[in-house]
Write a protein that binds this DNA or RNA. Structure first.
Length: 483
DNA sequence: CGAGAGTACTATAAAGTACTCTCGGTGCATTATT
């Protein structure tokens, strides 16, 4: 292939005159036919990588995406640019629409779908008829973090790749620890091919990290309110319980001048969308969220992320605190640590992972149990249909339990460690770089004095002034949107 | 599992004790008979 001038193509298709970090390298590697894993920091335009590469390749680009909302966002951006070359193949389509799309699948240059959709016979069959030149897995860490727990179709992507004639594979994510990188590559690797890794440093030098030890829940609430009253800007408080997220959100509204809303899977789509919009427009100061809040949230000026409950593992921790400070400004992430929270995490592990007895019983009486809708059961259906043996499945879940327990242990060790917190994180990402620890880096234990030191202490402003500032902000942001 | 909330009990009433109950995350996709 003659050497393409990528910068020219970038200008031609997107109107930009320069690439962001990692983009050009990723596109070049794909165009040379290499399977690629790109771990690029958020906000560096990961989707541009496969979109430009996709335009420059002959066939269709298939993009696997974990959330309907992400698919809709992406497709509407294509439509905004004025070419109907992208389609989201999701359950939002009616039966007849879906049939039409599958029949005319060759007319789309980019096909977005969920792994579940890709597992459907008629979908993979339609895609087999056309030339798929690029297979993209967006938010590829889901393969490792969601696949084995509750979305088993993520474990079948390899199958789809082979059925589609082993097109070039691109896995994209913003944060993947060394374990997750390896997991992704193992899952997506096809025979005789190896992945090329493009890993940009995940070190977030503008996020100060710390841990705050508390005695019990009332102490925790007290410390949280105190902290929120002193800290500047907007932020997220992460919970491992929907109920607590609701309760504490009320607590914040009633005891601080801040406006807070909960965000978790019990809210319907409309409510979630509203909260997200309000947060984007600075009409909400604090989101009290579970892990449901995260992917696809593109607010750049989140100043703090607080973990009310200790994160389940390192991977979630890094993903979640990484949502602060995307504008590069000084931000802070604090984990509240109460010894009892370990039980909550451990129970969540037990809740989702079926034990030996359950698996044996389930396989024995499968027919009577199908459709009970139990979460553990749904996952087991997948293995039952794959005709795995009881012993194989028992082994698999025992391993999974050990993995998760190890993840939890690592988190406990991290919380109790007094070493440089950033260095510990880099080590988890397999980066050998040594951190130059300074007062903006981290502290083993949190003390409110650091807020002033790193410039995150709130200046006292009167409520009236605050209202005024926010309403002018809104007017300005609306004006910009209109132009 | 085990903390924390809630309830029952006592018997000047109020507040303390003992017991019981509840909790615990992430999302695709569902389709259809009279």
């Amino acid at each position: 292939m003659s050497k393409i001038n990528l910068k020219e193509k970038l200008m031609e298709y997107f109107g930009f005159d320069s690439f962001m970090i990692g983009q050009e390298e990723t596109i070049e590697t794909i165009l040379s036919g290499q399977d690629t894993l790109s771990v690029l920091p958020t906000g560096t335009g990961k989707s541009l990588c496969y979109q430009l590469a996709g335009y420059l390749m002959n066939g269709t680009t298939v993009i696997v995406s974990p959330l309907l909302s992400l698919i809709q966002d992406q497709v509407s951006q294509f439509n905004f640019r004025g070419n109907g070359t992208a389609i989201g193949l999701t359950s939002i389509l009616s039966y007849s629409e879906k049939k039409y799309v599958l029949k005319n699948i060759q007319s789309y240059k980019f096909v977005y779908l969920s792994p579940e959709m890709l597992s459907q016979f008629e979908v993979i069959n339609a895609l087999k008829q056309i030339d798929v030149s690029l297979f993209v897995v967006d938010e590829a860490h889901c393969i490792s973090t969601w696949g084995p727990d509750f979305r088993p179709d993520y474990l079948d992507l390899n199958n789809a790749i082979v059925k589609l004639g082993t097109p070039c594979v691109l896995a994209l994510t913003a944060t993947a620890t060394l374990n997750i990188q390896n997991d992704i590559m193992t899952q997506l690797k096809t025979e005789g091919r190896d992945f090329h890794k493009i890993i940009k440093s995940v070190n977030r030098s503008n996020i100060f990290l710390s841990v705050l030890k508390v005695h019990d829940e009332s102490d925790k609430n007290k410390q949280l309110l105190n902290l929120l009253n002193k800290i500047k800007g907007v932020g997220i408080v992460y919970f491992s319980s929907k109920k607590k997220a609701n309760e504490v959100s009320d607590l914040i509204n009633n005891n601080t001048g801040l406006r807070s809303e909960p965000y978790h899977a019990d809210l319907n789509d409309m409510a979630r969308y509203t909260v997200q919009r309000q947060f984007m427009e600075n009409q909400i100061d604090v989101i009290c969220a579970t892990s449901a809040f995260g992917m696809g949230i593109n607010k750049k000026d989140i100043r703090y992320v607080i973990h009310y409950h200790m994160p389940a593992d390192f991977e979630s921790y890094v993903q979640e605190f990484g949502r602060s400070g995307r504008d590069g400004q000084q931000s802070i992430a604090i984990v509240f640590s109460q010894e009892n929270d370990v039980f909550l995490q451990r129970n969540l592990i037990d809740l989702t992972i079926p034990d030996d007895d359950f698996i044996r019983m389930y396989f024995k009486k499968h027919k009577e149990l199908v459709g009970l809708g139990e979460e553990k059961g749904k996952l087991l259906d997948y293995y039952y249909e794959k005709q795995s043996s009881v012993e194989e499945v028992q082994f698999l879940f025992r391993q999974r339990k050990i993995e998760k327990e190890t993840g939890l242990q690592n988190m406990i060790m991290f919380v109790n460690s007094s070493n440089c917190r950033k260095q510990q994180i880099l080590n988890h990402f397999g980066e050998s770089k040594l951190i130059e620890h300074d007062e903006f880096c981290c502290s083993a234990l949190f003390n409110v004095d650091v807020l002033q030191k790193i410039g995150l202490e709130k200046k006292i402003i009167k409520n009236d002034d605050k209202q005024l500032i926010q309403s002018t902000d809104n007017i300005i942001s609306r004006l910009f949107k209109l132009s």
